[in-house]
């Protein structure tokens, strides 16, 4: 097959000779042109190690170049490739077809995000809410001069927040959150987990500022302990736990 020059020249493919195959159903939707979404269906060969992202890229290479999908690192690091895979929010690069245990794999854009096209969604709101909780160290001497030492922490102090620092801003948690489905103003598990990440950092002095920001009518109290955020997080961040810790400060159980 001739290589289309505009496609990145990458070694995507599972060999087409593979014995096993699945039916890959890809949601196609262009909000500027289409009334509603429809599914394109492709039979795609796969191996034990083939990821959903590789299958989609195979389709792009061999069948339909127009499928819109966002990805970059292919190793669960950049947070670009979140999508609904058989109804659950997952990273396409971190989900093997073999582990889905299904002959049909349906991929759709993430819930609770505006669709740009096909599998790509807009992240403006997620970033806006992330920025809102001031995701950086707040302290008067935060700007260091070149001859100063960095702020030291003990391993125990790092333990307090490091799990929450693993967030890759993939948005899967916001996509799984039942409050986010109807409350577009809700700050959301991603931003709340990051609020805790900085509050729990011994170098940070912005606790009161951040607690004030999340203590509003569409803030932390709109979490109702569903826990789906933590279930889908690919990095083990556990936003639901961070949210409960933050609530502890606001209810006076922690200081």
């Amino acid at each position: 097959m001739a290589q289309v020059s505009s496609i990145a020249d990458e070694q995507v493919s599972t060999p087409l000779s593979s014995s096993k195959s699945i039916l890959l159903r890809i949601s196609k939707f262009n909000p500027q042109l289409d009334e509603s979404s429809k599914f394109l269906e492709f039979t795609v060969p796969y191996e034990k190690w083939t990821t959903v992202l590789e299958a989609i890229l195979d389709v792009k290479k061999h069948f339909d170049h127009s499928v819109a999908v966002r990805y970059s690192c292919r190793q669960a690091t950049c947070g670009s490739c979140g999508m609904m895979i058989n109804g659950k929010p997952k990273l396409a690069c971190f989900t093997k077809i073999s582990e889905l245990d299904s002959d049909v794999v349906t991929v759709e854009p993430m819930n609770n995000f505006p669709v740009i096209r096909d599998l790509t969604v807009g992240f403006e709101k997620l970033f806006e809410k992330h920025q809102k909780i001031k995701p950086y160290l707040i302290r008067d001497d935060a700007d260091m001069k070149s001859d100063e030492r960095e702020f030291l922490q003990s391993p125990q102090e790092v333990e307090q927040y490091i799990q929450f620092a693993n967030c890759i801003k993939c948005g899967l948690c916001n996509s799984a959150c039942p409050t986010m489905a109807t409350d577009s103003s809700f700050v959301g598990p991603q931003a709340l987990a990051q609020a805790y990440r900085y509050v729990a950092d011994s170098r940070d002095k912005g606790k009161d500022t951040r607690l004030n920001i999340i203590d509003e009518s569409h803030g932390i109290w709109r979490c109702h302990f569903a826990g789906s955020c933590s279930q889908v997080c690919p990095k083990g961040v556990d936003p639901a736990m961070g949210i409960q810790f933050l609530r502890g400060y606001l209810l006076g159980f922690r200081s």
Binding site: T182, D183, S185, F186, S217, H218, W221, R222
Partner: peptide, 14 residues
């Protein structure tokens, strides 16, 4: 109030 705030958003409505 909580249920209604989560159902729909808007300054006047809220």
């Amino acid at each position: 109030r909580v249920i209604l705030l989560e159902l729909k958003q808007g300054r006047v409505y809220e």
